[in-house]
C-alpha cells in the first residue's frame, strides 16, 4: 500500500526539504520571495537558489520572524532580547536590544513612503522606520500576545489581557481604540477590509469585534487553544487552528453570528496546529499535530495532501506573496518549501 507515498507526492515532486534538528518557530518569505525558517537554536535558515544558508541571528531561541519592510531580508525577535535584521547575504544588524525581556512578536509593513517595523516586548510595542530608527512606543496595560498591521499599514492591532487595541501608526496622540472583552487574549487577526478584529482566547474560543457597529462576535467549541488564525483574501472566511479539522467561520451575510462553521480535512485525534490562507484564492493551507500538511479549496471542499504525517507537529506555515510556494516546518525540525507554480 503506497498511502504514505501518495500523501507525499507534492513534497516529493515539487518540494525542497531539510532536517534542521531544532524547533521551527516560524517561516516567512521576504519581499523578493526568498523563504527563511526561524529556529529554536537561534538561527535563521535561508533557501537561496536551492541551497541552504544558516545565519546565527540570536543567542537563544528565535521567537518571531517577518519579512523586512525593505525589498529583501528579514526581521526577527528572540529570547536574547534582540530585535534583529538579517540581510539575504547573512549580515545581521541589531535594530534594538531589550536585555532580559523577550522580543516575542514582530511584524512589518512595506510601503514606498513609510515602511514600518514592529516588535512586541512585554507590555510595549516598539515601532521603527526602515532604517531602524525608533518611531514610537505603544504601551499597554498587560503583555502583548499578538500584533498585526491592517492591509494598508495605517493601523496596528494588538491582543492582550482583557481585549485588543487598535493604534494609528502615524497618529501624533497615542490613544488606542480599546476593544474590551474580559479574559486573556492570546492571538489576533484583522479582516482584509479592516472591519473585523478577531482574537483567540485562553478558554479555547475566539472573540471578535465588528468595528463599524460595535457588534461582538463569539466563536466557541474548540477542544484546544487556537494558536493560528487567518482570513482568506476576500475576507469571507476566517480559518482557524485548535480543532480536529480546519475550522472556517463565514464572515458573510451577517456571519459568523448564528452560523455554523465549516470544517475541512477532519481527522480523529489529530489537531490542526497551523493555518495560512492563500494570498489570492479561496484556499487554505493547514498543518496538523501529526505532521500532515494539506491544501484545502474552500468552495469545493477539496483536500490536496502536501506532506504525509510523521515529521513532527507542524509549527510554522507561510505562503509566498504570489501564492506560488508554501513553506512549512515542524516542532522536531523538519522544514520544506513546496512549489505549486511550476508546470
Amino acid at each position: 500500500m503506497s498511502q504514505t507515498a501518495s500523501l507525499d507526492h507534492l513534497l516529493d515532486t515539487r518540494g525542497v526539504r531539510q532536517e534542521f534538528g531544532a524547533f521551527v518557530v516560524a517561516t516567512a518569505f521576504d519581499r523578493g520571495g526568498v523563504p527563511a525558517f526561524a529556529l529554536g537554536d537561534g538561527t535563521l535558515r535561508l533557501l537561496r537558489d536551492g541551497s541552504w544558508q544558516s545565519v546565527a541571528a540570536h543567542d537563544g531561541a528565535v521567537l518571531a520572524l517577518a519579512a523586512d519592510a525593505r525589498a529583501e531580508g528579514f526581521v526577527s525577535g528572540g529570547d536574547d532580547g534582540r530585535f534583529v535584521r538579517t540581510a539575504r547575504d547573512g549580515t545581521t544588524t541589531e535594530i534594538a536590544g531589550f536585555g532580559m525581556k523577550w522580543v516575542e512578536h514582530v511584524a512589518s509593513y512595506a510601503d514606498a513612503k513609510s515602511p514600518v517595523l514592529a516588535g512586541a516586548v512585554g507590555k510595549q510595542v516598539h515601532l521603527f522606520d526602515a532604517a531602524g530608527a525608533t518611531l514610537k512606543t505603544l504601551t499597554h496595560g498587560s503583555s502583548v500576545s499578538g500584533l498585526v498591521f491592517d492591509a494598508r499599514g495605517k493601523r496596528i492591532a494588538t491582543s492582550h489581557y482583557n481585549g485588543a487595541s487598535l493604534w494609528f501608526v502615524a497618529s501624533k496622540s497615542d490613544n488606542p481604540r480599546v476593544l474590551e472583552w474580559k479574559g486573556s487574549h492570546i492571538a489576533i487577526a484583522l479582516s482584509p477590509d479592516g472591519d473585523s478584529v478577531v482574537t483567540a482566547m485562553q478558554e479555547n474560543a475566539l472573540h471578535g469585534w465588528r468595528l463599524s457597529d460595535g457588534q461582538h462576535m463569539r466563536m466557541s467549541g474548540y477542544p484546544a487553544k487556537t494558536q493560528s488564525l487567518s482570513f482568506t483574501r476576500s475576507g469571507k472566511w476566517l480559518a482557524t487552528s485548535g480543532a480536529e479539522a480546519i475550522v472556517l467561520w463565514p464572515f458573510t451575510g451577517g456571519g459568523p453570528m448564528g452560523k455554523a462553521p465549516t470544517e475541512l480535512a477532519g481527522a480523529d485525534g489529530v489537531l490542526c496546529t497551523q493555518v495560512a490562507c492563500h494570498p489570492q484564492h479561496e484556499a487554505v493551507a493547514a498543518g496538523f499535530s501529526d505532521g500532515m500538511v494539506v491544501l484545502a479549496d474552500i468552495p469545493s471542499g477539496r483536500i490536496l495532501p502536501v506532506a504525509a504525517p510523521g515529521r513532527g507537529p507542524i509549527s510554522a506555515l507561510a505562503w509566498s506573496a504570489d501564492g506560488g510556494r508554501l513553506a512549512f516546518g515542524s516542532e522536531s525540525g523538519f522544514a520544506a518549501v513546496v512549489d505549486f507554480s511550476k508546470a
Partner: peptide
C-alpha cells in the same frame, strides 16, 4: 534567565 512581570489572569 527570563525577566517576567507577574501577570495574574482570571479565567473566563
Amino acid at each position: 534567565v527570563v525577566d517576567s512581570d507577574e501577570e495574574v489572569f482570571e479565567m473566563n
